[in-house]
Simulated scan of single mutants.
Amino acid sequence: MYIKAAVLFSLLASSLAVPAANGDRKVKRGVLSVQDYSEFQVSDGVAGNAFAEVNAKFPIGTDFASVDSEDLAILKAARETAEAAETEEGGFNDAIEAAGGKDTPAGQALQNGKIKNKVLKLQLQVLALQIEAAQGKDTAAKLAEQRTKLAKNVQLDEEAAGQASSSVDFQGTSQP
């Protein structure tokens, strides 16, 4: 009798330890983490490869329908920070002006960094819109507009390939 009870208890305990099936539901855990702008910016180094650099820093894949809502929020927050790094006080526009404009070596390196930052901002926007579209939101018009802007800035970055590129010391994060 004790053996039957022990076997029954053992079977019951092991069945509780087996995870429940999710059926056909896809579960994807977030792959992104909150970072400071200095960690996810792509403006340092040389121009010419900004698009690949952005995709390496934000590796969400292509299964947009299953992207975690936290990852989407991080993408959106990083995009907002990248935009702020371009236009707000202490950002690229101020730094280029302080360097004497785009025609100085320092100004040109900052301009190349600004273009790389635009690729960052626009690619994050495109990814967010693709995710939202895959999850049922109508983003077609905005997506087409952002893809056009992205293509233009990727081309500008590629045209400057090999040239110095500088970032700015901008404070911000990808914290949603």
Results as ranks from 00 to 15, higher is better:
A98F: 03
E89I: 03
E80L: 08
T81C: 11
S69L: 06
K137I: 13
D71F: 09
Q130L: 15
E88I: 06
R147Y: 00
T139W: 07
A73Q: 10
I96S: 04
E97I: 01
K116S: 10
E97M: 00
K121F: 11
G91F: 01
A82M: 02
L124S: 14
K102S: 12
G91S: 04
K149C: 04
E145Y: 11
A95H: 01
D138Y: 07
A134H: 04
L72E: 03
V67D: 07
K76W: 00
R147V: 12
I74Y: 01
A133L: 13
E70H: 10
A85H: 06
E70A: 06
V126N: 04
K152Y: 13
K121C: 03
F64A: 12
F92T: 01
D63N: 14
A77M: 05
A141V: 13
F92Y: 15
L120E: 10
P59T: 12
E145S: 12
N153A: 06
G90I: 01
A85V: 08
A140W: 00
Q123A: 10
P59I: 14
L129I: 09
I96E: 03
A106R: 12
V126T: 11
N93T: 14
A84D: 10
A128F: 05
G113Y: 00
S69I: 05
A133N: 15
L120C: 06
I131Y: 11
E70Y: 08
V119N: 12
L143V: 04
E89A: 15
A85D: 08
D63Y: 01
L129D: 15
E86G: 08
E145L: 15
F64V: 10
A98K: 13
K116V: 00
G100D: 05
A99S: 11
I60A: 09
N117D: 11
T81G: 07
K116G: 03
V126F: 04
R79C: 09
E132T: 08
G90P: 02
T62I: 00
Q135R: 12
Q130A: 03
D138C: 03
A133W: 12
A141H: 10
E132Q: 15
L120K: 03
K118W: 09
E86I: 08
A65L: 02
A95D: 02
T87V: 14
K76S: 12
L110H: 03
G61H: 08
A95C: 08
T81R: 04
G91V: 00
G113S: 03
N117A: 07
L72Q: 03
Q135G: 04
L72A: 02
Q125H: 14
T148L: 12
A109T: 02
A141S: 15
S69V: 03
A133K: 15
L129S: 11
A144Q: 11
A98N: 13
L143P: 02
Q130N: 15
L127C: 11
P59M: 15
D138H: 06
L72H: 02
L150V: 01
D68K: 09
L110I: 10
L150M: 09
Q125C: 00
L129G: 13
S66V: 06
R147N: 12
D71C: 11
I115F: 13
E88L: 13
E88W: 02
I115W: 14
T148E: 15
V154T: 15
Q123H: 10
E132R: 13
K152L: 09
Q123D: 14
